[in-house]
Design a protein around this nucleic acid. Sequence first.
DNA 1: GGAACGCTACGGCCTCGGCCGTAGCATCGG
DNA 2: CCGATGCTACGGCCGAGGCCGTAGCGTTCC
Lengths: 254, 254
Amino acid sequence: MAHHAIMSTQGPYLAEIAHLMGDPARASMLHALMDGRALTAKELAWIAGVAPQTASGHLAKLMQGNLIAFAAQGRHRYYRLAGPEVATALEGLMVLANLDGASRRLPSRVGAELSQARTCYDHFAGRLGIGIHDALMAGGHLAASEGGYALTASGKAIFRALGLEPDAGSKSRRAALRPCLDWSERRPHLAGHLAASLACRCFEMDWVRRRKDSRAVILTEKGRGALEAAFPEFRCDAPGPVNPVVREPVPAPA
Amino acid sequence: MAHHAIMSTQGPYLAEIAHLMGDPARASMLHALMDGRALTAKELAWIAGVAPQTASGHLAKLMQGNLIAFAAQGRHRYYRLAGPEVATALEGLMVLANLDGASRRLPSRVGAELSQARTCYDHFAGRLGIGIHDALMAGGHLAASEGGYALTASGKAIFRALGLEPDAGSKSRRAALRPCLDWSERRPHLAGHLAASLACRCFEMDWVRRRKDSRAVILTEKGRGALEAAFPEFRCDAPGPVNPVVREPVPAPA
DNA sequence: GGAACGCTACGGCCTCGGCCGTAGCATCGG
DNA sequence: CCGATGCTACGGCCGAGGCCGTAGCGTTCC
């Protein structure tokens, strides 16, 4: 400590946040929450591989750092990420974790599924997300704008045809559509509240299904047809159904 | 450790990277390198407020994590960030560090200067960066494209007038122009190798000057004129020169 | 009301890792 | 060739913090 000279003003704050993410248990929890769902403390404890008491401590720290928030419901507490910015920051780190030395590339099947199609907080990423992004781009439905991207007239028509009002949340601070760098493909997919609404609609209509215990998702046959109908330029190389990997949902307690 | 159940596949990798950034000394170093320059181990040690031996250890760890790289030159080692992805990830964390509770907002003058104009790795951010971004946008010189943004014909003409070839690095993996979220303004500015070339040209022509010991930069009067001439829609609210803050560049060594 | 359950608070153990001192290796200048 | 300089390697010290056990509070269900 001695003189510590000047120490850049924000270095410490940066470190504070990074330190919170830098513990294996906490990182696992955050990673698990990146699909945008809310999980209970116990589920998160199991995912992180620690006892509930330990998890509780971690969650308290994450709360204090404003990285997560919870909704109390009965005797449960459902934890979720505090906001899209948190997911963005985590994706940024994953880009590094992935290109890093090529040593730690994603192993096997799980990795392949995640690269195909997955959720990124509340919107789609992976080749599915990029397929949607590129389809809109190729058709001239997307234009650069102040906040990132904006829909052209033809783009708005497409969203309205899906039952989504493109100008709905325009009063909000959050951008409607903006690019988000994909850690597996190194290319942008669509984020923003409009992208989130689209994903939401896809789940509602059973065009896309969540896999459990993973952020990977599956494009159903119905969904492929629907998306091809909605986006004329859409093409996505088979993130189709594979046989489900079932896993013991609860650990044997000693 | 006991059973540790399943533990998400990439949680640990994520944690590894975040852990590297999560130490105050290392975070200060990384932060200092975000202006894209290369610094010696000694300079970084001073910035971080630790002894050279300690800094050396930190730098070795950062090297191993592929966050930084160095160029040996005589008896000096010039360290720099390993790539733009690292800067992007750090900016992502700064967004969090900044909106976090409003408790830790940037203090005083330094913060104001940084919000005005600064470098973000190798391109401009702050209101200066956003001014350039918005000017191109407003003039219709920028369009959405596969990798992020692309210049329209009029946009390319503008860059050529500045002596920059817009299609130069098109063979490279790195995008020419893409949006980068600004932590101080919460709006995108331009990143990518073309944005880097532009910044480089601005320094060459003395349109923009670096401040020392900070990522803040100053738009000179000449620069303001030049940018207004180059970008018809450019407007930037006075990131003008302020009286320089001079600081002891080297610590009294006890 | 009582028991089971979800979660958090506190205390003690123990490892991890940041810190500097000393020492050693390379490079540059006279 | 010798000393100064920049940097790294090693070793010992010590504080921070992750871990779980026990305990306590609130909610739910019978």
